[in-house]
Deep mutational scan, measured.
Amino acid sequence: MEVRTIKVFTTVDNINLHTQVVDMSMTYGQQFGPTYLDGADVTKIKPHNSHEGKTFYVLPNDDTLRVEAFEYYHTTDPSFLGRYMSALNHTKKWKYPQVNGLTSIKWADNNCYLATALLTLQQIELKFNPPALQDAYYRARAGEAANFCALILAYCNKTVGELGDVRETMSYLFQHANLDSCKRVLNVVCKTCGQQQTTLKGVEAVMYMGTLSYEQFKKGVQIPCTCGKQATKYLVQQESPFVMMSAPPAQYELKHGTFTCASEYTGNYQCGHYKHITSKETLYCIDGALLTKSSEYKGPITDVFYKENSYTTTIK
């Protein structure tokens, strides 16, 4: 009895394709271990004539594949690729409408935090270190965002349907971005203890939790000093293409032309909904596939993004 075979390709990165001759009487799992086709788990399936010449994702289970996976995804987590594939199996079914010149995501599976993050990423200057993220990001900007969303979920250790947080998501993504040249110098002034300067680099240099107003941050924000008295913390120097200011959701007025974009969060910790506000020729609110415009805006804002380049204080 002759062994019926077909020729397929296996890959971990969709760049390096490895030619395989597979036995049609055995499952993919018996031949390769966990195997995925377009995100779908085909591990328990036997090869079919229609699979001839198709590319299958496999887990990096030998040295060659491990090197290829690390170079593309910059992670050695053995569960990463499987999590990416199972997320992709959902995100490829989502709709990605162009809204006001940006790629958004039609609401499904509690994905409003991903839509808000995706919209924000198209408006701030950011370059990702893992080629996987950078490639998928370019495709997302062009309207094909399924891979990018699935990668975000995998890097953030999230599953489809789980509630997510924009600030946490951005923080994970910033860790995989090139923020080497970003720098922030802060000064804390206390009447009792004097003053202390701190220099922050990388992710810490672009994120701040405690106030939404970048102007206020430049002037000074009140913080408790270690001595128990009130101290003032203010920005001395900022070198970065953008800054992200966050605070627990509270009524906040966004003035046209003073910011790049913002995240609105309605609801409580267990259950809520994100919308995205962007400042173009007027203010726009993007909620999944829905767009509304207004000249002014007041609502429960939790993150505001500002364009920056270089700032030095005039406070002496």
Rank of each mutant, 00 (worst) to 15 (best):
N268W: 04
Q98M: 15
K293R: 08
N16H: 15
T302C: 09
E68H: 09
D135F: 08
V22A: 14
D41F: 02
F70R: 09
R141N: 03
A146H: 07
K233S: 13
A117R: 02
K183R: 13
H276P: 00
S294N: 11
G299L: 03
A250E: 10
K255M: 09
A231T: 04
T258M: 09
W94M: 00
S295I: 09
Y297I: 01
M26L: 14
K127G: 03
P97E: 10
M244S: 01
S79R: 11
L291R: 01
E168V: 06
Y72R: 11
C261S: 01
T302R: 03
Q30F: 07
K280L: 15
V221I: 15
D41K: 08
C112S: 09
T266G: 10
N309V: 13
V42N: 06
P47H: 05
L133M: 07
H176E: 02
S310V: 15
D62F: 01
V58M: 08
I223F: 14
Y311G: 06
Q197V: 09
K219P: 02
H256Q: 11
K191L: 13
R184F: 07
Y57L: 10
Y84W: 08
Q237S: 13
Y214D: 07
L186G: 04
V21M: 14
A250R: 13
I223M: 09
D23K: 12
Q98Y: 05
T76C: 15
S294H: 15
T10C: 13
T55W: 06
Y73R: 05
F32A: 08
I15E: 10
V203M: 11
P300V: 13
V185D: 05
F32Y: 09
D109A: 08
I301A: 00
F70T: 14
M170E: 05
A262W: 00
G53P: 07
A154S: 08
Y36A: 07
L283I: 15
K7S: 13
N14T: 15
M245N: 00
A115N: 04
T159R: 14
I105Y: 06
G202M: 03
P300T: 14
H276D: 02
Q98S: 07
L121K: 04
L126C: 08
S246V: 06
S263R: 00
Y113T: 03
L186F: 13
T43L: 04
I286R: 00
D62N: 14
E71M: 06
T76A: 14
A136W: 08
V221T: 07
V8E: 08
A289W: 04
A231S: 05
I277V: 07
W107H: 08
D38M: 12
T282K: 08
L212S: 04
Y306P: 04
Q31L: 12
E144P: 05
S181H: 15
T10A: 10
R83Q: 08
S295A: 12
C149W: 03
I15W: 11
V8C: 12
A145I: 01
H176T: 02
P249V: 04
P300N: 12
G143D: 05
V8H: 00
C149Q: 00
A247V: 06
D13C: 03
M244P: 00
C193D: 01
Q197H: 06
T192P: 02
M207A: 03
L291N: 08
A231L: 03
I152F: 03
T211L: 13
T192I: 11
L114R: 01
G101N: 10
L119Q: 04
Q222C: 09
T278L: 08
A262R: 02
Y96Q: 05
T10V: 13
Q251P: 14
L81N: 14
Q238C: 01
T199E: 15
W94F: 00
L163P: 10
P249Y: 00
G299N: 02
L235N: 02
A115L: 01
K93W: 07
Q195K: 14
T19F: 10
V67Q: 14
M26K: 15
K92P: 03
H74I: 03
T266S: 10
L212T: 03
Y113Q: 05
